[in-house]
């Protein structure tokens, strides 16, 4: 972990300045709950950053503020120097519960972002078809989401985000509701895609192994009110391969992160964890 300086110092691409977010308390008569407290960080172009922390700490909220889906109460996020005002068409998002549009076929789901931005139907169908094929979903173009398994649905979700050729990919526990084997496969696939397309990825998870396997850098968040309490650089070579999961270095990193997360969790007991206002609908 001493090789940090070997990389050229890239200029910060995403900058998070003093982000603070408060939500109304779940219980009546309580004041606002501070979820994020003066969060500071920056992310370089092409970097794969994982946000990890105790459940309910506000990882997803931070992700949504970075994407512009919800406003911060204090502070600001800049991307490439410009302040984020709201969601934009060049940032893709992948959700834990897939959030595929049930009335659209796999193909129409993937083409959604292109359709919003007025890409012609020929071009968007072509691109969606190629992406689905690349995801191993060739032949499933006209299936509706309910006809697909969880893993297939999330491949569609990923393809939908990639279809708009985003500069940044925001991923909110994307594999959190998949079974263990599918999850491993999807991590491999994501690694391949990231290698091929070289995108900036901000990835939220509470799975330590997933974090180590995918990340260039892991940001560990504390219990509410959350701050980033530690940064861990993962210097495993890319592309990441399945066998690396067995490497001693991999295990050490995992153990280290677990230690940090556990300390953070014990730091303060939580009452009625609220991760995000729409968390309830995410299941």
């Amino acid at each position: 972990m001493e090789e940090r300086d070997a990389r050229p110092a890239a200029p910060p691409y995403i900058q998070v300045h003093g982000i603070t977010k408060r939500f109304p308390a779940a219980l009546k008569g309580q004041a606002l709950v501070t979820v994020l407290d003066q969060v500071e960080t920056s992310i370089a172009r092409g970097e794969f950053v994982v946000l990890i922390g105790p459940s309910g700490c506000g990882k997803s909220t931070l992700l949504r503020i970075m994407n512009g889906l919800i406003p911060a109460d204090e502070g600001r996020v800049t991307i490439d120097g410009a302040t984020v005002q709201g969601p934009a068409g060049d940032r893709g998002m992948v959700f834990q519960s897939f959030n595929l549009f049930p009335w659209r076929t796999a193909l129409q789901n993937v083409a959604f972002g292109l359709e919003l931005h007025g890409v012609g139907s020929q071009e968007r169908d072509g691109r969606a078809r190629r992406l689905l094929a690349a995801m191993g979903l060739g032949g499933f173009e006209n299936y509706y989401p309910r006809q697909l398994s969880g893993g297939m649905q999330q491949r569609v979700g990923l393809a939908r985000a990639l279809a708009i050729d985003p500069e940044i990919l925001f991923m909110d526990e994307p594999f959190g509701s998949l079974d263990a084997q599918t999850k491993l496969l999807m991590q491999d696939e994501l690694e391949t895609i990231v290698q091929r397309h070289k995108r900036t990825v901000v990835f939220v998870t509470h799975d330590m192994e997933e974090a180590v396997f995918l990340a260039d850098r892991i940001l560990i968040m504390s219990q509410r009110p959350a701050k980033i309490i530690e940064e861990v650089r993962v210097d495993l070579p890319r592309p990441r391969m399945d066998h690396m999961r067995a490497a001693p270095e991999f295990g050490e990193l995992k153990a280290h992160i677990w230690n940090q997360v556990r300390t953070a969790q014990e730091f303060r007991p939580t009452i009625g964890a609220v991760d995000h206002p729409t968390a309830a609908t995410h299941g």
Binding site: N67, L69, G86, P87, A88, G89, R91, G92, M93, F95, S97, N99, F101, F112, G113, E115, L116, H117, I164, F170, T278, T281, H282
Partner: peptide
């Protein structure tokens, strides 16, 4: 209308009009 589907559409930069028509 599912709030998470609205959020998904917004994350792709959908306008208010597009959210109404497409979601």
């Amino acid at each position: 209308v599912s709030p998470s589907l609205i959020e998904t559409a917004r994350s792709f930069g959908a306008s208010r009009r597009q959210v109404i028509v497409k979601i």
